[in-house]
Design a protein around this nucleic acid. Structure first.
Lengths: 119, 119
DNA sequence: ATCGTTTATCGTCGATGGACGATGAGGGCA
DNA sequence: TGCCCTCATCGTCCATCGACGATAAACGAT
């Protein structure tokens, strides 16, 4: 049931999508998924970004719940929160499919708008 | 530079995700998917946002290719570009699943704490 | 204890986003 | 023809983002 109600649900979803919607963050997730790059410095070297910038991106991803950081001392070990990412996938997938589903009215894609009985 | 994955693909993907990553835009897509709300004014009334703001969001969605606008005269008829949305779904789904896939081990340090630090 | 390494945080700066009101164009309709 | 309705665009304002350098904290090693 997709309610048209603009709940805080959308805010949360938008937050996570926003965390995802940045090339550097995508690259970080890619690096983490590829493995062997759990330390901040490794990602920094792979991305040619300042260390503080990468740290900031890591923070964004962490606040979005997409990754989990195990910081213990001088080193840190970041890892993708697989459950969270899978959950997001389960949320965004059906949503997009719903968006792409069949339209009830109003000439979805007609070049010529022939709107007559709209509402 | 083992695997930076420096693809401009990420830029494009980030662009579309960014277009998606806003509550108002999600609401607009929801309204469009629900049907019968293809005119700007309808969405405006449903969202309690200024008309210009909604128009701006529509523009963002259109520039991201997620919707198509059929503007002819005083009325406009927006519709979800279902092919584009489906394409995005086909792109983001496997990507997230890839992120959520097998953990290749954090070889560098391997502190037992690997999944926690939820703070 | 001191040094070196690694990382998070702070402060700053420019750019962008998001919201609004006002304006103007484009057609319907009386 | 003139009025009204609808929508896109412009200009503005404030907030946030994204990037950076600099700094400080936490630990291992010497």
């Amino acid at each position: 049931m997709v309610m048209t109600a603009p709940l805080a649900d959308d805010d949360l979803l938008a937050l996570r999508l926003r965390a995802l919607a940045h090339p550097a963050r995508l690259a970080i997730l890619r690096a983490l998924a590829a493995g062997g790059k759990c330390q901040c410095g490794h990602i920094v070297r792979g991305l040619s970004l300042a260390q503080s910038t990468v740290s900031q991106h890591l923070k964004v991803l962490k606040e979005a719940g997409l990754i989990a950081g195990t910081i213990e001392g001088p080193r840190s070990c970041y890892g993708i929160d697989r459950e969270a990412v899978a959950s997001l996938a389960r949320e965004i997938g059906p949503l997009l499919e719903h968006f792409a589903a069949e339209p009830p009215a109003c000439a979805t894609r007609t070049p010529d708008a022939r709107e007559s009985a709209l509402v």
